[in-house]
Design a protein around this nucleic acid. Structure first.
Lengths: 143, 143
DNA sequence: TATTGTTATACTCTATAACTATA
DNA sequence: TATAGTTATAGAGTATAACAATA
């Protein structure tokens, strides 16, 4: 009983990474056709939560460089997904916000992601689902 | 008690995706400098388990097209990480195998991935770890 | 004809280096 | 001088279309 998980190629870490790959692959399938990369979707979700972010904050959140973030925002701005504003308080900086178009898109994406998870947990009992979420929550909050 | 997880922006699915992002970000940090992308590492791990794979099998596993797989293998072959062989039984196909260099690399990567997980679960009790792994295992095996 | 893989070409994501504008 | 962001350029990863070799 001291080694609870031994499948998927030899260790508990592989269990996590197998799950991670499956989630990743499923999301890719689901969002195909929405014309939005996974980092872009993460950004939209984060913007929905924080309402406005500077370019530096976006780069930090996505763990990419500022030039990369700048280019990404260029593309998203051209597609009408975000808006750049220069605040009067510091005219060097840029504030990025959602648009009505991206607000609608977020709802569509949230639905597709929810679908991935519901398939994933469909065969677990209510009790198992509750236990799993409690443990995942603990894991993430302590990280 | 019917909705066990409500943090991280409003739903149980976000818990999964928050975990997924954290794992992904951590792995990226850990493997920085090894000069290997995450798909390439997944492939090496898969090759270690299956010993040899055709190009089509690789494309299917990574969920990329055959031309993309071909290009990826070009790069990995140039860096001495895989070897192409043409089997006598079907001279259209290609068999990809590991090299001694990549066998060593896999060990290094496995260590780094293990480290990510050990940090992640460090503050959980043995009982919690065991419960979590049992549930994750069930999740993945039923998927 | 069907299958396996490659080549040609193009687009997206990311990086580093050098730059501009503002503080 | 330091900070926030942009532009120029390059490399990796991926795709589609067209191709070659083998079955």
């Amino acid at each position: 009983m001291s080694t609870p998980a031994k499948k998927h190629g030899g260790g508990i870490e592989n269990l996590f990474f197998a799950l991670q790959k499956k989630l990743f692959d499923s999301i890719k399938d689901e969002i195909k056709g929405l014309n939005c990369s996974i980092p872009q979707i993460e950004l939209l979700r984060h913007l929905e939560e924080h309402h406005e972010l500077s370019l530096s904050e976006i780069a930090r959140f996505l763990k990419i460089t500022k030039p990369s973030a700048s280019v990404m925002i260029d593309g998203m701005e051209n597609r009408g997904l975000v808006k750049r504003t220069i605040p009067e308080t510091d005219r060097r900086s840029v504030v990025i916000t959602l648009t009505s178009k991206s607000t609608a898109l977020i709802r569509a994406i949230a639905g597709k992601k929810k679908k991935v998870i519901s398939v994933l947990i469909a065969k677990m009992s209510r009790k198992e689902q509750a236990d799993l979420f409690t443990l995942l929550e603990k894991l993430i909050n302590e990280y």
